[in-house]
Each structure stands twice: as C-alpha cells, then as structure tokens.
Amino acid sequence: MSDSGNMVEVKGLSKAYGQRRQEKYAVYNVSFAICKGEILGLVGESGCGKSTLGRLLLRLERPTKGEIYFDGQDITGYSFTEMRKIRDRMQMIFQSSANAFNPYYTVRQIISEPVMNYRKTDAGERDALMTEMLEKVGLDSSYLNRYSHELSGGQRQRVGIARALILGPDFVVCDEAVSSIDFVLKKQILKILAEQKKKNGFTYLFISHDMAAVKAVCDRIMVMYLGNIMEILPEAEAKALHPYTQALLAAVLEPDPNVKREKKILFKESGELAIPEAGCVFWPRCLYATETCMHRSPELREIYDGHFVACHYMKNKRTLEENA
C-alpha cells in the first residue's frame, strides 16, 4: 500500500491501444507518486502519452496493466459507479479546444453540473457558489448565460478551471491548460492555479509541452518520451541529467535577445516518432547512444535524492559529460 503522504501513486502502469497483435503502448510501465500539496509537472512532446497518463490517473481510461492508488485506495479496478463516488475529489482541466464543452450548454449548466451531481443545493445557493468561483478565475456572473462558443479562448479556459475547481477537489489534472493561449492569458491562468493551490492546498498534475510554464509553477518535473518516464527532476531548477531533458531544455527560447542560445540541437531528428524494437526508447534520437542502448532498455533509477533518471550512463555521471 502507498503511504499516506501520497495523493496519487501508480505502479507499473501501462496503457495499450489497438488490436492484440498490433498493440501500441501510449504509456508503458510507469511508476511514480504525487505527494499531497505538490505540483508535479509532466512534460514531453505531443504523442508521448502524457494526456493518456493524466486520464488514467482519473480512471477516465482503463489501464491495460498496473495499479493506481488514490489517497491510499487502490482504484485500478473500480467500476463506473464506484468511481463516481470519489470523482468530486479529483478533477481535470481540459485543453481549451472547441470540444471542451457541450455546445448546447451555457456556462451556468457547465459549471453547475458537478455541483448538482455532488452537493444538495438550491438554485440560489448554486448561483452564489458559481458567481464566487467565476470571480476567482477573473470572470463574473454575467457570463453564466453565455454559450461556450460565445467565449474567447481565454474565457473558455477559465470556465474550464471554474468547472474543475468548484467542488474543491483534492487532486487536479491540468492537461495543457495554458498551451494554446497567448502569453497574457497564460500568465493570468498560471497565477489562478498557483493561488488556488496556495489557498486550498490542491495537488496538481500539470501536463504541458511548455517548459517555461512548467518551470514557473511546478515543484517537481517528470519528463516523458514515447510512453516512458525518462527523468524526474526533484525541483524545477534542478540540473537535467537525461539527454532528452537536456534537449528539451535547450529548445526553450529565452525571451531576451542578449542571451543567445549556445547549443543548437541536442538530438537527432527523425521523421516520425516510433518506439524502437529494442533498447532505450530514445536511442534513435540520442546523440550519445551506444550499442548497449540499442539492446537493453534502461530502468528508472534514483541517482540523487529524489532525482530519477532512465539512462544507462547515469551510474557514472561523468560518462555523459565526457561524451558531450
């Protein structure tokens, strides 16, 4: 069993899609824990399985293998009805795509839905609650009667946040909550999330491909590549050790013309991302790959306190630096 300090813990979690013969793993043998009250960042390129992982944690998808614990309970095998009983404690903020809301619903219907499902309230109480929530995310009650297509991208994103936070959940998965919006809104939304966490002690899984945003709000950062965890950084500013994390960080563009990027590209380019038949999933693109990497897949090992890396050359940190 997981210890009580963890909000969420997963062990050997895998999710495969497709028919028996041509299974494709979106998430492969993933184990980690999210402590209560922390923001865990999950980064990776599109198609690396990070959204699938987020949905698995909330059991919006059924895992192929592995175990999921939520606040100490094993929820892996929970039925739809059993999950319903605890869904008020876990929520998800979806990417603000056009499909994030039922097109026939007004903001009032969108936000009141979770409340009606879990709290006994009358219309007046609900309206007061919703108005309060909307104000927290920087909107007001005049938005209640609008349809989602009448909102701008940033307003929609905030309605999504209001829907997720209105029940005061313990655990929130933010799936690309700031990725498709412009910088002004990005700042506002990051602030809202951070404030809510500070006030209410929420635990977040913050999924994004935006390294800058992740570094700004997260306590720890987990890096995924093709369904596998490559590295877990114990803090946002920790030095990246895995070649893939280094490549990702090198790709972040500093908003300062005086800081010129030194290294250009730290990985090999490949047209399509495919899981290699054997070895480390990253070897086809890794600049340091050797024979070993092509045949044996590395385990995720703790290098320093809380710093996990899945790379053969992490036993000896120098090896990598010399190679570089």
């Binding site: 390129e45 599109s46 491909h209 390294m211 490549a247 990702l248 790709a251 972040v252 563009l253 250009k264 590209i265 990985f267 380019e269």
Partner: peptide, 8 residues
C-alpha cells in the same frame, strides 16, 4: 509544434 521541432 513541439519545442524541439520549433527550433529547427
């Protein structure tokens, strides 16, 4: 696009 693709 992803960060790494963006750079190139």
């Amino acid at each position: 696009l992803d960060l790494t693709t963006q750079i190139s």
